[in-house]
């Protein structure tokens, strides 16, 4: 086993920042390629007219998930060394809800707003200003919400651990779910397009 390279000490902190920059370039490149620099396109996800967000996101998730799985199975990557954010269920559920509201109201999420800013979207610049303001507000009220922030701790836990199902089975199920979702998404898009065309006539 030799990966993750950084954890096995193949390079140091300074090089890791270069890696970070290059990784970010790749991340930004494909976000823009997928159309994530456009708030209209992103928001259309929530009106069922353009399901690109779902398609790109779930393709990315299953690609990384399947890749991670096979690289670990062949012994190239030590999966236990890949950092897993600990789960705090309740704050994450509430945070997710607020983030969902913010997504459709603002039209972006933090990552997508970056590519939108660099491709000239003025609303994205304002959005990012708002994000930083939100973080500032959170930081200022943190002493008041810190108890909630650390409530319902579950530690570093994964779906295979909590369900007791084999990792490989879950990989298969998520791939199936995503493929089913993609078929459904294509169908919905066609349906919405023909409805729109019908309304225009």
């Amino acid at each position: 086993m030799m990966a993750p390279f950084f954890k096995y000490g193949l390079f140091g902190d300074d090089v890791s920042l270069v890696v970070a920059f290059i990784t970010g370039i790749g991340f930004g490149f494909f976000l823009e390629r997928g159309g994530f620099n456009s708030a209209k396109k992103l928001a259309a996800q929530f009106y069922f007219t353009d399901l690109t967000v779902f398609k790109v996101m779930f393709t990315a998730i299953i690609t990384a998930m399947v890749g991670l799985y096979y690289l670990s199975v062949i012994g190239f990557l030590d999966l236990s060394l890949v950092y897993l954010t600990p789960t705090f269920l309740l704050p994450q559920v509430v945070g997710g809800l607020l983030l969902g509201f913010g997504f459709v109201i603002g039209g972006y999420c933090p990552g997508t707003s970056c590519v939108a800013v660099s491709t000239g979207r003025i609303d994205a610049m304002v959005y990012l200003g708002g994000t930083m303001f939100g973080i500032l507000v959170f930081g200022e009220v943190f002493p008041l919400v810190s108890n909630f922030y650390v409530s319902t701790p579950m530690g570093q836990i994964t779906l295979p651990q909590i369900t007791g199902l084999p990792y490989g089975l879950l990989v298969f199920l998520v791939v199936l779910m995503a493929l089913g979702g993609f078929v459904g998404a294509e169908w919905v898009e066609r349906k919405m397009a023909s409805k729109k065309a019908g309304a225009a006539l």
Binding site: M1, I62, V66, L68, Y69, Y70, S72, V73, G75, D78, L79, S80, L81, P166, Y167, G168, L169, V171, F172, V174, V175, L176, A178, L179, F182
Partner: peptide, 23 residues
């Protein structure tokens, strides 16, 4: 889609990715 399905299907039989190598 077919490619993803095949990879997903094979994952059913490929075993655990952990190797019990918790460090």
């Amino acid at each position: 889609g077919l490619f993803a399905f095949v990879l997903g299907f094979l994952a059913l039989f490929a075993g655990s990715p952990y190797h019990g190598s918790e460090a």
